[in-house]
C-alpha cells in the first residue's frame, strides 16, 4: 500500500480554524442565547427556597403521575437537599432542561421535514448516526474553541449527542400515521398544514414524546462530560470525586443524578401514556 496517508486531520483543523475566524458572530450569538437561558433557569431555580421547588415538583409529579410518583419526588428531592447537593443539582437541571428544550425546538421541526421529504431523510440519517457514535470528547474540543469554557459548550455537546432520538422518532411517528388516514384527510381537502396539525402530530404524539424522553435521558447522561469543559453542577461534583478518588462523594452525587433521571423519565413516560389514550 504505497498510497500516502490522507491529511484528514489537517483538513479538519483547517475547517475548525476557518469556522472560528469567519463564523464567530454566529457562535457568540448562540453562546449569548444558550448562556442566557441556562443562567435564567438556574437563577430561578436557586432563587426559590429549596422547599418551594420541592413542593412545586411534587405537585407536578402528583398531578401528571400517580401518588407514588409524588411520594418518590418529594423523598428524592429532600434527600438531595439533605446531602447538600441542592445548588449543584439545580444547575444540572438547568443545563439538562436547556439542552432538551433546544433539542426539541430544533428536532421536532427537522423530524417533520424529514417525514415530508425522503431526500432530506436520506441526508439526515447518516449525520445523526455520526452524531451519536462519534465519541463526545472529539466534538468537545471544537466546542471549546468556538464557545470557550463553561456551560455553553456543555449544552452544545449535550444537544449534539441527545437530539437524534427526537428527530428520528418525530420522523418515524409521522411516517407511521396510517396511509388511509392521510388519504382521508386529503380527500376532505386539507392543506398540508391542516393535515400536520389536525392529524399527523396528534397521532404521532406518543412516538414523538418517546423521542423527547430519550433526548432528556441522553442529555442527563452527558452531564459528567459537560463538566469537563467547565459546566457547573452535580456532574462536576462527580468528576472531582473521580479525580480525587473519593468514592463516597462520587456515590452521593451519582445518586442525585439518578433521582433526577428517574423523576424526569417517569414524568415524560406519563405524558406519553396520556397522549396514547384519547386527546
Amino acid at each position: 500500500m504505497g498510497l500516502p496517508k490522507l491529511p484528514l486531520a489537517d483538513w479538519v483543523e483547517w475547517l475548525q480554524d476557518w469556522m472560528g475566524d469567519n463564523l464567530w458572530p454566529l457562535f457568540s450569538f448562540i453562546s449569548f442565547v444558550i448562556g442566557g437561558i441556562v443562567k435564567g433557569l438556574n437563577n430561578a431555580l436557586i432563587w426559590l427556597p429549596p422547599i418551594a421547588v420541592i413542593i412545586l415538583f411534587t405537585a407536578i409529579a402528583w398531578y401528571i403521575g400517580k401518588w407514588r410518583m409524588g411520594v418518590f419526588t418529594i423523598v428524592g428531592l429532600l434527600l438531595i437537599d439533605n446531602l447538600g447537593l441542592w445548588n449543584q443539582t439545580m444547575q444540572t437541571l438547568a443545563l439538562v432542561l436547556t439542552a432538551a428544550f433546544i433539542s426539541i425546538l430544533i428536532g421536532i421541526p427537522l423530524g417533520i421535514l424529514c417525514a415530508r421529504s425522503g431526500k432530506l431523510q436520506k441526508i439526515v440519517t447518516p449525520v445523526l448516526d455520526f452524531m451519536q457514535t462519534m465519541p463526545a470528547f472529539v466534538y468537545l474540543l471544537p466546542a471549546i474553541t468556538f464557545f470557550n469554557l463553561g456551560v455553553v459548550p456543555g449544552v452544545i455537546s449535550s444537544i449534539i449527542f441527545a437530539i437524534p432520538p427526537t428527530i428520528r422518532l418525530t420522523n418515524l411517528g409521522i411516517r407511521q400515521v396510517p396511509a388511509e388516514l392521510v388519504e382521508a384527510a386529503d380527500a376532505f381537502g386539507s392543506t398540508p398544514g391542516q393535515k400536520l396539525v389536525k392529524l399527523q402530530l396528534p397521532i404521532a404524539l406518543p412516538t414523538i414524546m418517546a423521542g423527547v424522553n430519550q433526548t432528556i435521558m441522553l442529555s442527563l447522561s452527558m452531564v459528567v462530560i459537560a463538566s469537563m469543559v467547565g459546566a457547573q453542577g452535580v456532574g462536576a461534583t462527580v468528576y472531582r470525586a473521580v479525580t480525587q478518588v473519593k468514592t463516597g462523594v462520587g456515590f452521593e452525587a451519582g445518586i442525585a443524578i439518578v433521582i433526577l433521571a428517574i423523576i424526569l423519565d417517569r414524568l415524560t413516560q406519563q405524558v406519553i401514556k396520556k397522549s396514547k389514550s384519547h386527546g
Binding site: 382521508a184 381537502g189 397521532i203 384519547h278
Partner: peptide
Amino acid sequence: RQFRRKNIGMVFQKFALFPHRTVIQNVEY
C-alpha cells in the same frame, strides 16, 4: 382542495376514522 371540500365526499373501506377525535369531531372534519 375546494372541489374536494365542497363537491365530493368519500367513504373508505376501512372507515379511516381519526382515532384521536370524537365521533362529532370526525364528522365535522
